[in-house]
């Protein structure tokens, strides 16, 4: 006797919880054969607002964690994803991907998590500088997290694309509200189950499902979002977001990449979402030669 198949209800991921959309709206997600496979939350601007509140709340503790601790947590994420490979391969295949490609995408996603986990406690050394100044000061510049980042994840590669845009941001101590792929959100939102079980505090990553068309203006105009990252191709949405983000002088970044390429992972994506703080520390002249640092 075969048991009844138990279907998962896909929900949003906000502040470490899995709420339904407050709007009560849903849209249908289909597989490659055009069969409806799930009802997906159609997040509203209030859901986005709630996610920003959660991300802001999480920012203080996440950005002040030690870099090494953040690294451990990102590595834990990779471990959790590794253990759930089969589920993600299955969800990717429903988008029409071959088994080989699906396995490759999951493998690359795990690798990318490990990659950014490694960078957590190293990018400061690379991007931080000691600056020559002509007064008796020790002058140095260090990168610091920007704050709450609104991300519109790539439409294709629902797992690898999302991991590639979110991981460098949280590696750098930011907190994120990310809108998943509209057409293939299954494994993007399933990733929330990985995040929720990997010591990542609630609110550091918040995942919404829905339409960029409805939400992109709110991502760009929300005064409490410090930067936006748009990783899709729509030229009109890009223009609108660039304009609206000027309202509170948000940093705005637009990525279009082949997420399979090796250079899709690089520490400069961390640097994009860092503010550089320069400190002037008064000192006596150092050394007998009178050298100044």
């Amino acid at each position: 006797m075969s048991a009844t198949e138990i279907r998962k209800t896909y929900k949003l991921f906000i502040g470490g919880q899995f709420p339904r959309t407050e709007s009560g709206r849903y849209y249908k997600v289909s597989n490659a054969k055009n069969e409806v496979i799930a009802n997906m939350c159609l997040a509203s601007r209030k859901d986005f607002r709630n996610a920003v509140v959660a991300a802001r709340k999480a920012f203080e503790s996440w950005s002040t964690k030690s870099a090494f601790n953040r690294s451990q947590i990102l590595y834990r994420m990779a471990e959790m994803l590794e253990g759930r490979k089969a589920q993600f391969v299955d969800e990717l295949m429903q988008t029409g991907m071959s088994k080989t490609m699906a396995e490759k995408e999951v493998r690359l996603s795990v690798d990318r998590m490990v990659y950014y986990s490694g960078w957590c406690d190293k990018y400061h050394q690379l991007f931080g500088t000691v600056n020559p100044v002509s007064s008796s000061h020790f002058n140095f510049s260090m990168p610091e997290a920007m704050g709450v980042i609104g991300v519109i994840a790539p439409e294709s590669h629902p797992l690898l694309g999302l991991v590639s845009v979110v991981l460098p941001l949280i590696a750098g101590g930011n907190t994120v509200v990310v809108l998943a792929s509209e057409k293939h959100p299954l494994c993007s939102i399933s990733l929330a189950e990985v995040l929720a079980t990997s010591d990542l505090s609630g609110g550091v990553v918040n995942i919404l499902t829905g339409k960029s068309q409805e939400l992109h203006t709110h991502f760009a105009s929300h005064m409490d979002v410090n930067a936006i990252l748009y990783a899709r191709a729509d030229a009109k949405e890009k223009k609108t977001m660039a304009e609206l983000s000027a309202l509170n002088v948000k940093r705005s970044f637009f990525y279009e990449r082949d997420w399979y390429r090796a250079d899709a992972e690089n520490p400069y994506d961390i640097l994009d979402f860092q503010e550089i703080k320069t400190t002037w520390h008064p000192i006596e002249q150092i050394g007998t030669s009178g050298a100044k640092y």
Binding site: R49, H218, S221, H222, M223, D224, L247, N248
Partner: peptide, 10 residues
């Protein structure tokens, strides 16, 4: 006043 979500920064 602004027509968009506000920030505690202000």
């Amino acid at each position: 006043k602004m027509g968009v979500y506000y920030s505690p920064d202000y």
